[in-house]
Simulated assay, not measured.
Amino acid sequence: MRASLILLGVALLGGGASMCPTPTPPAPVVKVINDSCAWVKPLSASASDTRETRQEIDAHDRAYVANCPKAALTR
């Protein structure tokens, strides 16, 4: 009889602990900084550049303006 009362008491105490909700920790604050355009700048051709090099520079500068419009306006 005594053993059954002890087992009943242990079961009740153990069951009560699982009924309490566990607090969830706050979500971490993540700040995303987009600096993908910070390392790129427009290029300029020199007089000694070939036609092919000037075309490549023009293509680079067009891609720069298309991908970094805010940075292109400030330069």
Rank of each mutant, 00 (worst) to 15 (best):
47 A>G: 09
16 G>I: 08
32 V>D: 06
44 S>R: 11
34 N>A: 11
31 K>H: 12
25 P>C: 05
19 M>L: 11
26 P>Q: 03
37 C>P: 09
41 K>R: 15
35 D>H: 08
47 A>I: 07
44 S>Y: 14
16 G>D: 04
46 S>E: 09
36 S>A: 09
30 V>L: 05
46 S>A: 09
29 V>N: 01
16 G>P: 03
47 A>P: 04
23 P>C: 04
24 T>N: 06
32 V>A: 02
38 A>Q: 14
39 W>Y: 13
37 C>M: 10
33 I>D: 08
27 A>W: 04
17 A>K: 06
32 V>I: 14
36 S>D: 14
28 P>I: 01
31 K>T: 13
29 V>C: 02
42 P>E: 15
30 V>Q: 02
19 M>C: 08
43 L>V: 10
45 A>K: 00
36 S>W: 11
28 P>Q: 00
32 V>Q: 05
44 S>V: 13
37 C>Q: 01
22 T>D: 03
23 P>V: 07
38 A>C: 11
48 S>D: 06
20 C>P: 03
28 P>V: 00
34 N>G: 07
17 A>C: 11
25 P>E: 07
31 K>P: 06
38 A>Y: 12
16 G>A: 03
36 S>I: 12
28 P>N: 00
48 S>R: 03
18 S>R: 00
41 K>G: 15
36 S>Q: 14
22 T>M: 02
38 A>G: 13
28 P>C: 00
47 A>R: 08
24 T>P: 07
25 P>A: 06
26 P>A: 03
38 A>I: 15
27 A>D: 07
33 I>V: 15
40 V>P: 01
21 P>C: 07
48 S>I: 13
23 P>A: 02
21 P>V: 13
23 P>L: 11
19 M>D: 02
28 P>T: 00
39 W>R: 02
29 V>K: 01
24 T>A: 13
30 V>F: 03
31 K>F: 10
26 P>R: 00
20 C>K: 05
17 A>D: 09
38 A>L: 14
33 I>Q: 04
42 P>N: 15
39 W>C: 13
41 K>H: 14
24 T>I: 15
29 V>A: 02
38 A>W: 15
17 A>S: 08
26 P>F: 02
23 P>D: 02
35 D>I: 14
41 K>S: 14
27 A>V: 14
20 C>N: 05
39 W>V: 15
27 A>K: 07
39 W>M: 09
43 L>F: 12
35 D>Y: 12
18 S>A: 12
39 W>E: 05
38 A>F: 13
24 T>W: 12
47 A>W: 09
17 A>E: 07
22 T>W: 12
47 A>N: 07
37 C>R: 03
18 S>Q: 01
21 P>W: 13
24 T>G: 05
17 A>L: 14
48 S>A: 07
17 A>I: 14
24 T>D: 12
43 L>E: 14
29 V>H: 05
37 C>L: 09
26 P>G: 00
